[in-house]
């Protein structure tokens, strides 16, 4: 994991805050749906916040491939690099 990924993960964890039911420890290996209990609508809403935070477009079909917080960070890094 490089510094950019760490920074993205930190931002993701920060953005997840409002959608969480209970306080949990989030790591890059945390599964967004299984461990955090976000339904698909909550995931889509949360991704919208990330799009604004990182000023990238994260298409819905890319989200479908994402399982963990780390996967999401990698996706955002890639999409950001492309811009």
């Amino acid at each position: 994991m490089n510094a950019e990924i760490d920074e993205i993960v930190t931002e993701i964890i920060h953005a997840l805050g409002p959608s969480l039911q209970a306080p949990v420890t989030i790591t890059p290996d945390t599964s967004i749906t299984r461990d955090l209990g976000l339904d698909s609508l909550a995931v889509m809403d949360f991704v919208m916040v990330l799009e604004d935070k990182f000023d990238v477009s994260i298409p819905l079909e890319r989200i479908a491939e994402v399982e963990t917080v780390g996967d999401l960070a990698l996706t955002i890094q890639e999409l950001r690099g492309r811009a």
Binding site: E51, D52, S57, P59, L60
Partner: peptide, 28 residues
């Protein structure tokens, strides 16, 4: 959206400014 093959982007409900912002990101 699920059935098609296009990239799908959501914008905030009834928010033309939010749509504009998302389209601007996709301007290239």
């Amino acid at each position: 959206a699920k059935m098609g093959t296009a990239q799908v982007v959501r914008f905030r409900h009834n928010d033309p400014d939010d749509l504009y912002k998302r389209l601007r990101r996709l301007s290239d």
